[in-house]
Design a protein around this nucleic acid. Sequence first.
DNA 1: TTATAAAGTAAGTGAACACTTACTTTATCA
DNA 2: TGATAAAGTAAGTGTTCACTTACTTTATAA
Lengths: 235, 235
Amino acid sequence: MPVRLSSIDRRRQILRTASGIFARRGYRGTTTREIAERAGINEALLFRHFPSKAKLYWTLIEELCSARGRRQNITKIIEAGGTDLEIFTAIAREMLVRNARDTELTRLLWFTALESHTLSQRFFRTFIAVYYEELAAYIRRRVRDGAFRNVDPLLSARGFLGMVVYHFLVQELFGARKFQKFDPERVAATLAGIWLNGMRSGVPQVAANGAGHANSNGRNGHNGNHARAGKKIQQ
Amino acid sequence: MPVRLSSIDRRRQILRTASGIFARRGYRGTTTREIAERAGINEALLFRHFPSKAKLYWTLIEELCSARGRRQNITKIIEAGGTDLEIFTAIAREMLVRNARDTELTRLLWFTALESHTLSQRFFRTFIAVYYEELAAYIRRRVRDGAFRNVDPLLSARGFLGMVVYHFLVQELFGARKFQKFDPERVAATLAGIWLNGMRSGVPQVAANGAGHANSNGRNGHNGNHARAGKKIQQ
DNA sequence: TTATAAAGTAAGTGAACACTTACTTTATCA
DNA sequence: TGATAAAGTAAGTGTTCACTTACTTTATAA
């Protein structure tokens, strides 16, 4: 029983189908025939919705970029407050878990980066740069607070995301997952712990409203855990 | 004046040419015609050297894997000794600089990872895994020494490499380089600094020969720099 | 109930692909 | 010096690709 869809629904369906195939095979590795087949339609119909394969791909990336408000996630986590460790662990967890759920988007992103210079930059800004700019802003604040050492916020933000993203890529893309599983929660806590410990100033201050003053118990702990981070941040 | 090469030289030349094109366009994006053209030969000659495009690709990856002894680099750095900061900065610098020199290999690696599951695993083990296994071994030693906190060596090694590799990928692959340049030396020092500080135990010990004993000046420094790391390691 | 516009398709087209065949050129050494 | 083996090529082959043409089906509403 062939389903007859409205133009707009069919379009959406084609995009959804195409997304999966492009993610698995890349732009050049994907054929319009396969997309049509998987969508359960004739190839000609695909070309009535999208004038070319290239335009279909472009549209797909565009819609992904405008649809997903990833920025939200990280902002929300930061605004929810908590200790630094809680915040950074939550961010790492968010990335590990969400990424695992849509490996598709990640693959699409990396394929695009490799295959197309132009396309990848916008894609990158939407899905990656916002992450670490948001993070950099938070780091800058904590440096002002005196809670973090005075290191380049952008670079250190990139460092943190690098730890997390790279772990994910190694597990998913390079198939390390087959040989060793990792508990996302433990990974998030460990990586956040290392990074955060590395960022901590020896002389932490109360952070809120910039009115903080030094306190004396500020040295880093050894071994064990490190949940003793800086204070909440202002709403 | 057409050059007439010996079979073995022609083969080498084809591989070298193919490497560049595969790296730029990926496996599926590369045509045998273009390889032949760029190599200045007829396509038929290419197929006398390699029975198929797939076999050519495989051979290329194989030869890259067996030729380059990347493992050497990191081992040498560790064996050369120095403070932890010196060692980790050197590793980061090595990766940033070498990677920048052969973006080609990096692109090839990532294309392979995305396009082929089977192929990528061996490739990965040769060019990435060795790095962090070597590193993990060193970290394990430093944990035993009491210089590093007791965190998963593999995970933390991956974290360190993640920082460095990710920074490189963002700069090179996603074109962030166009908007902001970074001095590799500064990047290496900063990332190594964060990570190392994060790994440091509050109670460092003398490392050499396992005969180390606790000493009391062991807290982490605040702000400023951190070249005050653990001791040399045994040759 | 029938006109119509839009959803949908069968069967192509030329171009580009990986790969082959059948041939020519040239270095080398008996 | 000429036989030979190997380097090299012109001109294909069948197949698959992105994309088109000319047609059929069906929901809707006057």
